[in-house]
Amino acid sequence: MNHSLLQVRRLTKHFPVDGGWLRPPRHVHAVDDISFSLKAGESFALVGESGCGKTTTARLLAKLEKPDAGSMLFDEQEVAELSGPALKQYNRDVQMIFQDPFESLNPRRTVRAILRQPLLNHDAAEKGEIDETVVGLLNQVGMEPGEIFMDRYPHQLSGGQRQRIGIARALTLKPRLVIADEPVSSLDISIRAQILNLLKALQAQHDLSYLFITHDLGVVRSVCDRVGVMYLGEIVELAAVESLFTTPLHPYTQALLSATPVADPVKARKRRRIILEGEVPSALDPPTGCRFHTRCPYSEKRCVEEKPALRELHPGHTVACHFAGDVGVDAAAD
């Protein structure tokens, strides 16, 4: 019962960048040898800053990009090898919700047309029942009564309502895995909470698994079960959500947590703050050894030379750092 719905092993994607005359082509190391798994009914978050490869991972899973190496097993089947009916089934089982509900909805199509399309493409409803199904979906995502929204265009809806349409569209084909790429980061705070409640309720109702792609650790703690922290194309820490927040092991995770605003002036001013120096290096030419060593407050010679392997320091809590678990590195977690 508790098997892995999705298993990602050593997934790698490099994008070539044109070199030029006499200059060899170079590669953006978008995703580099990452592994994680997701159980049925679970919410897994990939967290990181822009350029860390989290969106590329989502696009690989949605088959919008082809991986260079590694495997993605969905229900124990290799995603890259799917074809024919199995591929069609995969396309139904895995759906995506995008960040910007303005850009991911066709402005020239009505809500009805947007939500009908997947049903038609996959023969997922009887012709006579399509409208009824669409109204049902709208009601489910809190746009009640659904009938009054059917003939509206995206520009006639608010940002929150548009995101609800994006969610309804992802649900049309009764998926098992929903990949949500920053689903709330373009929304106002008061709307954000509404959408997250909706996503949680739908998960319980439909037994969905979520892959959350986000940069916002505030969302992660309340919405997800497990987390992978990405930095420059690699997963540097992988843990259950409470474990990650109470005992972050990787210096990058610690810095990320300390940089995330806490909505409580007393706590916010008491906590120890780690301000990282510099910026994320270019993914065209990632640093040797540990990719975080250029910004890490604990960096030593070994970090420059030797790439740290993922080690399981606590049950279910793995980290890629030579010194994680050492006294100095742990003290920063308070």
């Binding site: 608010s158 929150g160 309502q161 705070i189 008061s190 709307i191 954000r192 909470a193 509404q194 997250l196 409640n197 949680k200 916002d216 650790l217 505030g218 969302v219 992660v220 703690r221 309340s222 959500v241 409470e242 927040f245 947590l257 995330t260 605003p261 806490v262 909505a263 409580d264 706590k267």
Partner: peptide, 18 residues
């Protein structure tokens, strides 16, 4: 309704409407 990384919330309280 502000989400903060210092605590886990199961159901968010929201401001209804827009």
């Amino acid at each position: 309704s502000t989400l903060s990384p210092d605590k886990r919330v199961e159901v968010f309280e929201t401001i209804e409407g827009q």
